[in-house]
Nucleic acid binder design. Structure first.
Lengths: 344, 344
DNA sequence: GTCAGTTGGTTAAACGATTAAATTTCTATT
DNA sequence: AATAGAAATTTAATCGTTTAACCAACTGAC
């Protein structure tokens, strides 16, 4: 691999001049510039970014620490991050905590896993990344502030209790409210909920939105209309069965995610009822399954890629020393309207 | 940040000695070792990997170039890669070509996209990675050999026409054969196929396996039993409809992926038929949907994580100068048996 | 007491860039 | 023609490591 020294030799100038040509922030005569460029072409010279990093004390690399790359929203978030960073000439050093296996559907404070997390952060810090993006698997508030490694840190999909750390998530509450409104606007009076686990922060935010939509239409929420699931297909099926056995069964069901909504479908069809004629169903997450059900499931699409893009943007601003205008950004979701809900 | 120089100063030795302590490949007296270690503790010194990389001409970073991080198998593959590399102290620099948007379900030779690909490779090469893993989205043969950037390169999920490049994929043919055997063993005589697009390499390999299983049981494959879909739910539905309208409808259907199998389900149920009593269905890919259908879909799980692990392993071997024993590895899939197929 | 061998440690030259400061070369003004 | 000022270029220090080569001190053997 050619070095600047060789380029300098070939074009009869000093390495400094070669550097000046390349950086373009010093005057160089047209004549020398051309000679240098020729030599560069000729030798297929590429600047050694390692040497540059050492000298400049800046790697142009951002560490992305993901709780689990296999978590559903994670690839899209990383995609968004990658795209924004590329635009500014940064690269992504990826580190995977592989938490999914360890704490699937558990919502303890992350602080219990500080060991794993800070080891992950340290690894990135050792690589001298310019900044770190922490990508959580579930939207939640992170209370145990991570050991400050002295590198700018922002959160995707989680909100930090440390106000100095920026974060970008999506608006659970509002989205749940909006999709529930779809049902109230269709004149449904008996709307039931299949929630996620009661101790999940996501469940609680979506529950708030659901309640608000009902309130807006002065609809009651009898306790027997709230069923607790575990995000999985089977819990959706079982809880729907229970709902349909009530003396006043609901005419619409909001399942807090799509697999549970699929469970709804199964329970409803097993009883010979039709969707949406007899009962409406809406879901959340817009997983692949939503378009593979009959009829297509109306649901909420999360702005995952946008979250990634925005959080990268936020970090870049910090790196440029700009003050962050909004430390905690919450992006809106998009309602995906299909055929699973209809006027009563 | 503390440097070796400061450590040396604090412990009254030269930087060389500090380096020797850290690397452990030179003798150092217990006394000095302790003094140095103390100073390191005290200052919380961390070795500057950038400087080390420059000096050693080795970054301990592997570039992972993915065709699209949002492609279904990709996160699991990356997970496997990450895990293997971590075990050997390497880190992952991720680069995303974002091809999904550009060529979804098109199977032209990658050579048409050499521009995009070689730009991606160049970016990683510029970062001075020690090796590159190319992660394709669909199992296929890559003919246009990528510009050799002088960095060891291996393929995941694709096989290269260049024998010098290692590769790891999964065994489409054999897996399709095995899952079809499940049907022949259950005494089915009329087995139909819902294939992917005819020009897809994946389709063709799975077709070979399907044919072989039928041959083994001396079953015929009438042309009207082969239906071409496009991997999507709707094509599964339509093609199954066509199958069920035949004078001799099949008693079992192999859909080449799970969304199309979900389409099968819809068409079958619409006619009031039962799965598996009236007709058996099997799929491929083990997507989330497979466990959200009723009855659960018997399908094939791809060894994605294992592919990642193996391909990383292969690259590491190359980096250590070892000869690669098997340049093209093909890993077996796992049959996931649920309730969608039964004895006739 | 001399000498060879070992052990523990230092010196100094890399690695390949950037950049402030110094120096040379060119332009323009008188 | 002399000279001040601007423009172009070079010199040399620096970033934080690694490591070959060198050196001093010590250990035994004779």
């Amino acid at each position: 691999m050619a070095t600047m020294k060789e380029i300098a030799g070939l074009s009869g100038v000093s390495v400094a001049t070669v550097s000046h040509v390349l950086s373009g922030k010093k005057n160089v005569s047209d004549d020398t510039r051309q000679r240098v460029m020729q030599a560069i072409e000729l030798t297929n010279y590429k600047l050694n970014t390692i040497a540059k990093s050492l000298r400049m004390n800046k790697t142009n690399i951002i560490g992305v620490l993901v709780e689990d790359i296999c978590g559903l929203p994670v690839p899209e978030i990383v995609d968004g991050i990658n795209q924004r960073l590329e635009e500014s000439g940064y690269q992504v050093l990826l580190s995977n905590l592989r938490l999914l296996q360890q704490l699937y559907n558990q919502y303890e404070q992350l602080s219990q896993y500080t060991g794993v997390v800070s080891r992950g952060l340290q690894l990135l810090a050792d690589a001298r990344v310019d900044g770190i993006i922490y990508v959580a698997m579930h939207d939640r508030r992170i209370t145990g502030v991570h050991q400050p490694v002295g590198i700018p840190l922002v959160y995707a999909y989680a909100e930090s209790s440390d106000p100095a750390c920026g974060s970008v998530t999506y608006d659970n509450e509002n989205s749940a409210c909006e999709i529930t409104r779809l049902l109230t606007w269709q004149a449904h009076k008996h709307i039931a909920l299949i929630a996620g686990p009661a101790n999940s922060p996501v469940t609680n935010r979506r529950l708030l939105g659901f309640r608000q939509a009902l309130d807006e239409s002065s609809l009651p929420l009898p306790t027997e209309y709230i069923r607790w699931g575990d995000w999985e297909y089977h819990s959706g099926l079982e809880q729907t069965d229970a709902l349909l056995s009530l003396t006043i069964p609901p005419t619409a069901i909001f399942a807090m995610n799509d697999p549970m909504a699929a469970g709804c479908y199964a329970a409803i069809k097993r009883r010979g009822l039709r969707i949406p004629e007899d009962i409406s169903v809406v879901g959340f997450d817009n997983r692949e399954i939503a378009s593979c059900l009959f009829p297509g499931l109306t649901t909420v699409a999360l702005p995952n890629k946008e979250i990634g893009y925005a959080v990268a943007q936020q970090l870049l601003q910090r790196l440029e020393g700009q003050a962050i205008e909004t430390p905690n950004i919450s992006l809106p979701c998009r309602i995906i309207q299909r055929e699973s809900s209809g006027r009563l």
